[in-house]
Design a protein around this nucleic acid. Structure first.
Lengths: 249, 249
DNA sequence: CGAGGGTTTGAAGTGCATCAAATAGTGTGG
DNA sequence: CCACACTATTTGATGCACTTCAAACCCTCG
């Protein structure tokens, strides 16, 4: 591993909540054993049930975590992007990955042996707390997802997703680009691609959103919030605000 | 607090994964500051957003964790029973409860100040690891719930729930009692009470289950498994097996 | 016994899925 | 740089699962 790579890895890890605030030595343990590599769209990183020798942190790109049912349906557990870590919970799953991972946009990914993770968990209290914190954040994220699936309809689920995407922008109107392709996004939000398409059209109708391929222009953010609010148990903008750093799958 | 209570508390805590294997001193910290008390059906333990000074462990009974949307819909996050802990993640939520808790069957509950939890998290590595492990278990539980909501229909969701309830029985046929009342269970499984009722009838029709009030007799467990399997990404009986110790909400 | 919650049943409506086909968008090799 | 192939997206028509509203029934408990 050359120096350049080492620097790149260190930068990414430091920006990932899982590793933030770690002491020099602990961080060094991870960095020394990390490997940065490029992966093309379509690459399967691992299968469900496979022995989990490594966990992953994304430097750039998109990875889809998913499962398949016996009857062939695909369930998208989550979409991961830069600074997201995944596969790290295999430590608690008898050393096996509980889902599949597929690269869906060309990505730069950092790979670290789970053995290092295990050792740090045993020895480095600060790291355990970090992991606890990021797991807790993710738990909240999942709770919200469950709630949305249960009580929100398709257009509102998309609306909430877009609000999360644009929450950091303060300008009104807001322009944003939908990540990855629409069919995957649809599955991630628990609907079929056709429904997604129609629901987008409904949003266009009801809250005056403009859509151009993957680009979305929200002319009136408040109107979108008002549209989504009635079925959201979290108070806005808290619901929108607190999604920022989801790090653990 | 009398000695008797102290013993009862200690017994329950030891049986709760969150505290299992803790050193004497750490355990004593919790026990010394714990309070065991009875709560009647209907009692609200805390509201969403309330300052979280305490967390809870159930010794006996049932507690419902839920939220309400602006439009008045209720979302049941989870149902907790003996040896389940809840409210403990408020430590990571700016010290506030992220949901409401209501007693739905007369219960004996252990209450411990979150301050103790915080201190132990800071100082007691073993306890942190316990919490990490139980959080990880709960995460899996949530994942499965999300998956079920997305790809399983109502009868199958109920079937999976019953399989989980009866997984420890080895005898066929199996008789079990549905916990708490059916309308709450329905909401917990993401459907309305009417749908629940009709779905039960469908199960009766398709897999030959006998229903008598809250008592369910599964005449052929394998048939039920076969009925649920096609839409389940986990392999049976793993899916059924691994639900046993869910401790963290 | 009567009141009130929980549960079931019926009829009608809604939202999403499904199937099918048309259209737009993307990448490839000639 | 264009033609072709392939994939992603949209649109339409139809069906099914769940919800909604309403009423009846059932159970429990004062």
């Amino acid at each position: 591993m050359n120096k350049n790579n080492s620097t790149l890895i260190s930068e990414t890890l430091l920006a990932t909540p899982l590793f933030s605030g770690l002491d020099e030595e602990g961080l060094a343990q991870f960095i020394q054993n990390a490997r940065l590599s490029d992966h093309q769209k379509g690459k399967i990183l691992f299968l469900q049930g496979e022995k989990a020798d490594y966990f992953y942190i994304i430097k750039n790109g998109w990875v889809k975590l998913f499962r398949e049912t016996i009857s062939g349906d695909e369930h998208v557990i989550d979409m991961m992007t830069r600074r997201h870590a995944f596969g790290e919970t295999s430590v608690f799953e008898e050393g096996k990955y509980p889902y599949r991972a597929k690269v869906i946009e060309d990505s730069e990914i950092i790979i670290i042996p789970t053995a290092i993770l295990k050792k740090q968990l045993e020895r480095n209290h600060k790291f355990s707390l970090n992991m606890l914190s990021s797991m807790s954040h993710y738990r909240r994220h999942q709770e919200r997802q469950i709630e949305h699936l249960t009580i929100e309809n398709a257009p509102r689920r998309i609306g909430c997703f877009m609000l999360r995407l644009c929450f950091e922008e303060e300008a009104c109107p807001v322009t944003l680009t939908l990540p990855y392709n629409k069919s995957v996004l649809a599955l991630h939000l628990g609907m079929k691609a056709e429904t997604f398409s129609r629901a987008l059209a409904a949003l266009k109708e009801n809250v005056g959103i403009e859509i151009n391929g993957s680009d979305v222009r929200i002319k009136d953010v408040e109107k979108l919030k008002a549209y989504c609010r009635p079925s959201c148990s979290d108070s806005f903008p808290e619901c929108v605000m607190s999604e920022q750093q989801v790090t653990s799958p």
